[in-house]
Simulated assay, not measured.
Amino acid sequence: MTLIFAHRGSAGTHPENTMSAFHEAARVGADGIETDVQLSKDGEVIIMHDERLDRTTNASGYVKDWTLQQLKTVDASFGFKGNWGKEKIPTLEELLIWLSHNQLLCNIELKNTFFLYPGLEEKVIQLVRAYEMEGRIILSSFNHYSLVNCHQLAPELETAPLYRDGLYMPWVYAKAIGGSAIHPNIRAAPDAIIQASLSMGMPVRPYTINKAAEMKRLYGMGCSAIITDFPKVAVRVREGLNM
């Protein structure tokens, strides 16, 4: 069965990367969530996609220039202002505590391409181990050097390279850097590449799959998972195919 990962939570319907978006993903029956981590000025692992606060909050500036205490004063519901009230920026620890009360998988993307965030890998791995989540966590990044570092630090954790452009035999490349799956932009993953990867035993989890027709096509191919902003739609489409 193709698994459904809710991209930044249910980002199509709720403020992305907030607890309300994660709660919604669980409520509608997603198999997992996808989220993003960076470091605050005082070295705390916080959940935020953009390096800047401007798009998704009522604040401005770089995440790295704000302490956790300062970040907690920001309203992260900005894209959905007024719909659910004020949303706080979660920490990874807060998310892991919540995950300990359910069975969801979690794909943590390390946002360390624009800023390298020294120590991010170690801190994420330390938290995952502290909450005994090793079997439910996938680490991904566009920074493949970081993923190699993660694999060396924690070979028990699954890692998966993210990429936007075509790769020749990506299943070979992923294996070469210690990866256990590939997370391509769907535009860089034609059917032949997905089928070849699956045939070589390499799971494929493309992003961002938001159209029902594309969901059906990937389900029909037996794709390992999809990453979507609309987990409710994805679950409904999958259930419809199983009827």
Rank of each mutant, 00 (worst) to 15 (best):
H14P: 05
H14F: 15
P15H: 11
E16R: 00
E16C: 06
N17V: 11
N17S: 13
F22V: 04
V28D: 09
G29V: 14
G29T: 12
T35E: 07
T35W: 02
T35I: 09
T35Q: 05
D36S: 13
Q38T: 07
K41C: 09
D42K: 00
V45D: 05
D50V: 07
E51Q: 10
R52V: 08
L53R: 08
D54E: 03
D54S: 06
D54T: 08
N58G: 07
A59M: 03
S60F: 10
V63T: 10
V63Y: 01
W66D: 01
W66F: 12
T67Y: 05
L68F: 01
Q69C: 07
Q69P: 04
Q69G: 09
Q70D: 14
K72E: 15
V74I: 11
V74Q: 01
A76W: 01
S77C: 03
F78I: 11
F78W: 12
G79H: 01
F80R: 02
K88N: 05
I89Y: 00
L92G: 02
E93G: 07
L95K: 08
L95H: 11
I97Y: 07
W98P: 00
H101M: 06
N102P: 12
C106A: 12
N107H: 00
I108V: 10
I108M: 04
E109V: 07
K111R: 03
F115Q: 09
L116V: 13
Y117S: 07
G119E: 05
L120V: 15
L120K: 15
L120Q: 14
E122N: 14
K123M: 13
I125W: 12
I125V: 15
R129L: 08
Y131G: 01
E132N: 10
E134N: 12
E134F: 04
R136M: 02
I137V: 15
I138P: 06
